[in-house]
Amino acid sequence: MDIHISRVHYPVTTLGPGKRIGIWLQGCSIHCKGCISMDTWQFDINKVSINDVKNVLKAWLPQCDGITISGGEPFDQEKPLTELLDFLNSYNKNILVYSGYSFNVLKEKNLVQNGSIDVLISEPYDHTQSQTKRLLGSDNQKVHFLTSVGKNEFTTYLEQPLEKKLDLHITQETIWMAGIPINGMKEITQASKENNVTLTHSQAVIKK
């Protein structure tokens, strides 16, 4: 089976407790205004064998503290997501999944009911909302503890205040960031401008 992947990275320290594997799926049908990851919207690119993805993950799984899956929209690839989760659950690591779908849409899905996901964050990002809660881009989003593992390992983490922290991966041409920036890219863009660095990013398309 094939799966469309935007990127995988380890370690990620900004999307859940501990050092985590981050998996970003490629393709999203929701298209939230102000999305910070518009590069993950397009379908039918970055197709890889799910077995190749598993082989990459095998090197990291023994040492990671958990896995965070985002996108794109993971539930737009429900069959590959199911196979991926079946594989990840064999390592007994906590799994957090982000989705832009409402919980009313997701709650009847087998993946939500069968314990494959420990913590689910649902609801579309809303750039007009405030942002006061950890792991959330906007306060309308909701955290669901789907297993006791999720509740035990995330409750204290989520009660901590927001922190201005991002994981950075820097190449000669790009800077890739993982995490939930406070107030989106506004503060980062302004600080960069003050240091004579111009950033181009997906949130720049928002019209005020």
Rank of each mutant, 00 (worst) to 15 (best):
M1S: 11
H4Q: 08
H4Y: 10
S6F: 10
G16V: 02
R20T: 05
W24D: 02
L25I: 02
Q26S: 04
G27Y: 03
I30M: 10
I30Q: 13
H31I: 07
I36P: 01
I36E: 00
Q42Y: 08
Q42F: 08
F43Q: 09
D44Q: 11
D44T: 08
K47P: 02
K54N: 03
A59R: 12
A59T: 03
L61R: 02
L61N: 03
C64L: 02
G66L: 01
I69A: 10
G71P: 00
G71K: 06
G71S: 11
G72L: 05
G72F: 00
G72N: 01
E73K: 05
Q77R: 07
K79C: 05
P80T: 03
T82I: 02
E83V: 00
Y91A: 01
Y91P: 00
N94G: 05
G100T: 02
Y101H: 11
K107C: 12
E108H: 13
V112Q: 05
Q113R: 15
G115P: 03
D118W: 06
L120N: 04
K133F: 15
L136E: 07
L136N: 10
G137K: 08
S138K: 02
S138P: 12
V143E: 12
H144S: 14
F145Y: 15
F145D: 14
T147W: 11
G150W: 10
G150P: 03
K151W: 03
N152G: 04
L158W: 11
E159W: 07
T171S: 15
Q172E: 15
W176R: 14
W176H: 15
G179K: 02
P181R: 09
E187R: 09
I188P: 04
S192N: 09
E194Y: 07
V197R: 13
T200Q: 14
S202D: 14
